[in-house]
Computed example of a mutant assay.
Amino acid sequence: MPFTTITGIGHYVPKNVVTNQDLTEVMETSDEWIRERTGIEERRYIERGKETTTSLAVEASLRAIADAGIDKEDIDFIVFATLSPDYYFPGAGVLLQRELGIAKTEIAALDIRAQCSGFLYGLSTADQFIKSGMYKRILLVGAEVHSVGLDFTTRGRNVSVIFGDGAGAVILEATEDKEVSVLSTTMHSDGTYAEKLSYMYPGAHGGYFIEKYGIEGFDVDYNLEENKYGGVFWNQDMLDKGRVYPHMEGQAVFKMAVRKFPEVILEALKKAGLGIDDLDLLVPHQANLRINQFVAHTMGLRDDQVYNNIMRYGNTTAASIPIALSEARDEGRLKKGDVVTLAAFGAGFTWAAAVLKWGK
């Protein structure tokens, strides 16, 4: 049975830098307030009308392809993780295929909707395809554009100050060498907390879950009789009441994240036949610097064993791990044979981890 190895990696972030001070111009906040709660100093936003989730993915993908020393036509499967696709449908995977100019190969393109855990869900999926022998060279991408869908007012600041735009990509290939391969992956979810971190409107639920679970802070804000055949998925009332923005209960997310992060990291290491003492570098999802620092302290990790870049980019959800992994490689933080653990926690709730031996 073949193993899976990363043969190419690349990332891309927009040139437009938005500092905490910039955000004070549109909402009541401060650089100190944002840094204290999140550790974020700045983030990147796309140039509207000229960049998209897919266009960021193209740039990251081309860099990963070049790094792997392959031709884009050599790719036989695309896995695209994002919570901010350019279209509600079709998915971003086929758009990436088209923009890369490889549509004529008619390879499959799979979209992953696991939010912050999306890249690791994608990695686990791709790993199984390679191990089964179905595919030999897979392009795995995590890309996000949050800046076009946030509430840039004081009402939305708790969420809006956190997120940024960016993309990261890897080329995964079959190998016989276990010493430079993915050693383990693990994934979990708990839908009990689905609405704690969510983007509920527009959507097809029609208020069903709001009524069923009595979700605090929400009500069924449209008349189903008046909208018998429409107006439930999307209507003006949703816009007027600010329903079309992300919702987050920060404390609930923080408490669950700091518990599940260490659990899933240790689970993945154990599955790989390793322990925390074998770990060379932890690359966690960049949701909140305070979460990552708490987890590192809890697990007894040194600062040089954890890679963080949320200070520069904010939370880029599915893109955060491949961006951080790419930067860590570029900065010389990785050498061949290093044991690297990737871990993520996010909306759903979903959480996941992977352990690999670095081969680049």
Results as ranks from 00 to 15, higher is better:
I75E: 04
G118T: 02
I46Y: 06
V180E: 04
F254D: 02
V58N: 09
N308M: 10
E176N: 12
L183A: 03
K360F: 12
V145S: 09
E331G: 06
I34G: 10
K357V: 03
I138G: 13
Y313Q: 00
E36P: 02
E73K: 15
D22R: 13
Y12W: 09
G91A: 15
M27W: 11
D76I: 07
T4N: 01
G346V: 08
Q305V: 09
F77K: 11
D76C: 12
L123H: 07
I276P: 01
E36V: 02
I40K: 14
F80K: 04
G142N: 11
T154E: 10
Y121K: 05
M1H: 14
T38W: 06
F163Y: 14
L334W: 08
R312P: 01
R44V: 04
N227R: 13
L23W: 01
L334I: 04
H146I: 01
A60I: 03
E32Y: 13
F233I: 04
V159A: 13
A268V: 04
L289A: 07
E216L: 05
V306A: 15
S132I: 00
E179N: 14
N20E: 04
N292R: 08
M1V: 07
G10C: 12
Y12V: 00
A343T: 13
I40Q: 13
P284A: 07
T53H: 12
H285L: 11
A252T: 09
F233C: 02
K104E: 08
G101Y: 12
L110M: 10
